[in-house]
Amino acid sequence: MTAPTTPTGAGEPTASDPAPGGRRVRHRVRATLLLTGLTAALVAVALVSAGLGAYPVPVDQVAASLLHAIGLDLGTPPDRIGQTVLWDVRLPRVTLAVAVGAALGVAGAMMQGIFGNPLAEPGVIGVSSGAAVGAILVIFSGLTVFGHWTIIASSFVFGLATTLFVYVFARSHGRTEVVTLLLTGVAVNAVAGAAIGLMTNFSQDAQIQTITFWQLGSVSTATWAKVAAITPCLLLGLAVIPLYARRLDLLALGEGPARHLGVDVERMRLVVIAALALLTSAAVAFAGIVAFIGLVVPHIVRMVTGPGHRILLPSSALGGGLLLMSADLLARTAAAPAEIPLGVVTAALGGPFFFFLLHRTRAKQGGWS
């Protein structure tokens, strides 16, 4: 009696069907290289950015000053003027740019995961505009109920309300439609623009200048106090990563399979939406409307490491900080001594990328008609 035969290739991996263990190892290697590369690039660009400006400070002196601040007497720090420029002007700006970029990068990745839509991004679907309305309303009315936190609180409430509205309105038969999401974003941006225009029309000259700052985006008014204020918001938003990254991966399989695997989908949505609204609102409160960071960064990360959120979310934080800091460096040096609004730079970079994603998504779905 002969033993039963198995189909050719069954039971053992081939060159075209690598072993799962090998794939996992390669994935970990790519993830480690990506996180290490992003961290190294972030530090390098930060040192360069902190040294460039009207009063240049060499990179080695910037590094020496930072090392001296943590008790390591290595290198030669800059002179007194250089130290003042570095610690009172440049470093707060660089740090705030990294924090805002990290918040927007993670918020974009979370939004794409929870909406199940690759074109979701706080600026595109109107969440940033909604949060800006809350911030500008505080400026226009002069409210100071919570002191420096009033703008953040108002921005968060409006940002959360906008996120929930877009999410509910764009959902249909258990999924988020691409066209509905984009059209909802157009409508929300239009309504928010009308509200901002109305408040601008009845504002004083000083208020108009501040409102213009929110509309164009900038981190030029960065201070250590603002860095300290945005840090708790950023940490609370990032705290979602270890708790819900794996569950977002399961949600990508569909709501039904995710529930069968033990995921409380509705609870997860509420937590993730609150986190991304907090991140977006904090970014808008301190830097104004800065679009496309949350769209560009997660897609670039996915091209390198795949869609797994355990790597995607922290990589989007690092990549967002790196991209926004680089954009701010370009904004303040490309036309020196004048400064290009930060939102203009990110829109110029992100707009063409959005067209590319729009075309690719439509081609994959075979059209939207």
Rank of each mutant, 00 (worst) to 15 (best):
M1E: 13
A10I: 13
S16D: 15
G22N: 13
R30T: 05
T32P: 02
A40F: 15
A41L: 06
L42S: 08
V45T: 10
G51H: 04
G53S: 03
P56H: 09
V57L: 15
V57K: 03
V59G: 00
D60M: 08
Q61W: 05
H68T: 13
L74P: 03
L74Y: 10
G75D: 02
G75T: 09
T76I: 15
P77V: 09
D79E: 11
G82E: 06
G82I: 04
T84G: 12
L86N: 03
W87C: 03
V94G: 04
T95I: 02
L96I: 02
V100M: 04
G101F: 07
A103Y: 01
G105Q: 12
A107S: 15
A107V: 09
A109I: 09
M110N: 13
M110S: 12
M111F: 00
G113A: 11
G113H: 05
I114E: 03
I114Q: 06
I114D: 00
G116R: 03
N117Y: 08
G123P: 00
V124M: 01
V124C: 00
I125M: 06
I125A: 09
S129D: 06
G130C: 09
V133M: 08
V133R: 05
G134P: 07
I136H: 07
G142L: 07
L143E: 09
T144M: 08
W149N: 04
W149V: 05
T150S: 01
T150F: 06
I151F: 00
I151G: 10
A153P: 02
S155G: 03
L160C: 11
A161G: 13
T162N: 02
F165P: 00
Y167M: 11
V168W: 15
V168M: 14
A170P: 12
A170Q: 10
V178G: 07
T180F: 08
T184V: 15
T184S: 15
T184N: 12
V186R: 10
N189L: 06
V191K: 11
V191T: 13
G193A: 05
G193Q: 03
A195H: 11
G197K: 01
G197A: 11
S203I: 06
I208R: 04
G217V: 04
S220N: 12
A222C: 10
A222F: 00
K226H: 14
A229F: 01
T231V: 11
P232S: 00
L234I: 01
L234R: 07
L235G: 02
I241S: 02
L243K: 12
Y244W: 10
Y244Q: 05
L250D: 04
L250Y: 05
L250T: 05
L251P: 05
G254H: 14
V263T: 00
V265Y: 13
R267L: 15
M268Y: 09
R269W: 15
V271P: 10
A274V: 10
L276P: 01
A277H: 06
A283K: 08
V284E: 01
V284I: 04
A285G: 02
F286R: 04
V290S: 03
G294A: 11
L295K: 07
V297S: 03
R302D: 04
V304W: 05
T305Q: 04
P307S: 14
I311V: 15
P314H: 11
G320H: 01
G320C: 11
L323V: 10
L324R: 06
M325E: 10
S326Y: 03
D328C: 04
T333D: 12
P337K: 06
P337R: 08
G343K: 02
G343S: 02
T346P: 08
A347P: 08
L357S: 11
H359G: 13
A363Y: 12
Q365M: 14
